[in-house]
Design a protein around this nucleic acid. Structure first.
Length: 564
RNA sequence: UGGGGUGUAGCCAAGUGGAAAGGCAGUGGGUUUUGGUCCCGCCAUUCGAGGGUUCGAGUCCUUCCACCCCAGCCA
């Protein structure tokens, strides 16, 4: 086996490349990466994968990762996006320290490099219209034709380029193009445009420029200027690599290695910024940070911990195969993290009233329970108990089905942290609906244990009616009903697959009194139900609003489903 | 019918000629004051398909098939 390409098990292909470079000293053992978003939208979970890869490899190999805004197109980019991107990267737990860069900071250098290329006879000013350029480019199977302007003298090109820069031409009137090969089977090599004229002001450079560099021209230069060693991007740029290399080789400047990996796709999720924008503008969601959005800000608001997103990102791996990760895999990491960190409380989403007929009307007790059984060191919380309680409607069946071992007439079972309680009577309303349950408690079982060793088949959560905090709970489901929202009939668009039930709001819910103390943005576990996050925008002291992050794993739901 | 990529379990993904890692999902059991957590067991005689080389092939050669990307003055 070749020493230099030897691979460690469990290693991904990028690590193999980096370690090979380190061994051969291609970059003096250095690793310098960058995360290069265009500020034209909010970051989403797919970007999180890229962020994790770029910052992760830098850290893993003792290098650094820059945050660089690739702001070469003034017509699409906005400061609002710059702000949100910085916030999101930071929240995810990554630090670019003092290395915050903008492509627009390099415009002057790009311009110089363009002049170098012209002087080398490798770039020319073209007068062709956009339509003509397209015609001359040829097709996938037929070669292109050279522009009649391709043979202009270096002097003419220099002069015309200067005039382009000076604003003497209208938008689209001229371009600067590289002189490569109009017959290349790689379309990117058919004299790509380096500069276009855009009389528009830029969010950072204002009206200083009216010519703006194209991605292919700018990106390698940005990487080169910053001393990037490994320029990691997504698969669709694979056939841009020859061009990336061409520019850097012909300029004779520092030449990073471009490496392409497969972007993240997830089931029931749309990942294109353009489409996410459409959801926002079409008011299908409340904004970029709607908790149903796959954006970082949406997930943050939903209550996904950054640790979970990082763990997810590193567990999905890095490869070149186009894959779609099951959204449940993300939820697994969310649960795993939240189980560790979330304080527990009890809350009832669909209340059913219980009256403990043998419990004195005016009596109240303060019971105790662990804040988080995974972290006993956190201690106990206090929970009030009284004669009237609420339990979950789902936890009672008048005629219990097989394997249902929650509450039913005549049954005794444990109310969590409280008492063994027996259901004696079902009180109905005029329509025959269940109004309330009359029960009795066993005072000997305080805390939830029977001194005689009696067992309970189930343990229910409950809330004291008089102490409970009435709150709003928002239940979220997948935003789309289809595995791949882009799968649509001819003439339809992905919004047809929007899930009408992706948001359900419950106004009549009751949480343990301690819920009032929970800070916005904090996630707690509603025992037996799931994880809920106090909404950072809409929650207030007099109206608590919870977002459901994810449910708990629900074995009972599976059993029910199987029996049907 | 040009060029560039990718095919290993339901979903991710290691494996780079010498006994098919791991995670998720699923499934069976144990513990449990959350039908949660945790713990243990099971879950690919086969790697897109065929042919070839080899003592030996997921790995090498070859033919074929499927899927993704490219014809912006977007990134």
């Amino acid at each position: 086996m070749n020493e230099e390409t030897e691979r460690r098990e469990g290693q991904n292909f990028i690590e193999a490349i980096i370690e090979k470079h380190n061994k051969t000293n291609k970059y003096d053992g250095k690793v310098q990466t960058r995360f290069p978003p265009e500020p034209n939208g909010y970051l989403h979970i797919g970007h999180a994968k890229s962020i994790n890869i770029n910052f992760g490899f830098a850290k893993q190999y003792g290098g650094k990762c820059n945050l660089r805004f690739d702001d070469t197109n003034p017509s699409k980019e906005e400061v609002e996006y710059v702000k949100s991107i910085k916030e999101d990267v930071k929240w995810l737990g990554f630090d670019w320290e003092d290395r915050l860069y903008f492509a627009s900071d390099y415009f002057e250098q790009f311009h110089q490099y363009a002049i170098d290329l012209i002087k080398k006879g490798l770039a020319y000013v073209d007068d062709l219209t956009p339509e003509q350029i397209r015609e001359f480019r040829g097709t996938l199977t037929t070669p292109g034709k050279e522009s009649p302007n391709r043979g202009r003298s270096i002097e003419d090109n220099l002069e015309l380029f200067e005039k382009m820069k000076g604003g003497e031409f209208a938008n689209g009137e001229k371009t600067l193009r590289a002189k490569i090969d109009m017959t290349s089977p790689n379309m990117n090599m058919r004299d790509p445009v380096l500069y276009r004229i855009l009389h528009e002001s830029h969010h950072r450079t204002g009206d200083k420029w009216c010519i703006y560099p194209m991605y292919d021209w700018a990106h390698g230069l940005e990487d080169s200027i910053e001393g990037i060693t490994h320029s990691i991007c997504t698969l669709e740029f694979e056939d841009h690599r020859p061009l990336y290399d061409w520019f850097l080789d012909n300029l004779g400047i520092h030449h990073p290695q471009q490496i392409e990996f497969a972007r993240l796709n997830m089931t029931y999720t749309i990942m294109s910024k353009r489409k996410l924008l459409k959801l926002v503008e079409g008011k299908h969601v409340s904004g970029w940070d709607d908790p149903r959005m796959p954006t970082i800000s949406g997930m943050r608001r939903r209550g996904f911990p950054p640790e979970a997103i990082r763990e997810f990102s590193s567990h999905i791996g890095v490869s070149k195969s186009n894959s779609t990760v099951d959204i449940e895999y993300l939820e697994f990491f969310v649960r795993e993290q939240l189980n560790r960190q979330a304080p527990r409380i009890m809350a009832v989403l669909n209340p059913l009233k219980i009256i403990i007929t043998n419990y004195p009307e005016d009596k109240e007790e303060i019971l105790e329970s662990q804040i988080n059984p995974e972290k006993p060191e956190l201690g106990l919380r206090k929970i009030p108990f009284s004669r009237e309680l609420y339990i979950e409607q789902e936890d009672f069946m008048e005629e219990p089905m097989k394997k249902f071992y929650r509450m039913a007439p005549g049954r005794e079972l444990r109310f969590r942290n409280a008492y063994f309680i027996t259901c004696n009577e079902v009180i109905k309303d005029d329509n025959g609906g269940i109004k309330e349950l009359h029960c009795t408690y066993d005072p000997e079982t305080k805390g939830g244990n029977a001194p005689d060793g009696r067992k309970s088949k189930a343990t229910l959560h409950w809330v004291s009616a008089k102490h409970a905090v009435r709150s709003t709970v928002r239940l979220y489901k997948n935003l789309f009903t289809t595995l791949n929202p882009d799968d649509t009939e001819e003439g339809q668009d992905f919004t047809i697959n929007l899930n009408p039930d992706s948001l359900k709001v419950l106004e009549d819910t009751y949480a343990e009194s301690g819920a009032k103390e929970i800070d916005p943005g904090t996630v707690c576990q509603f025992e037996r139900l799931g994880y809920f996050c106090v909404d950072i925008k809409d929650s207030s002291a007099d109206n608590l609003v919870f977002n459901r992050v994810v449910t708990l794993r629900d074995t009972w739901a599976k059993i029910k489903k199987k029996m049907r």
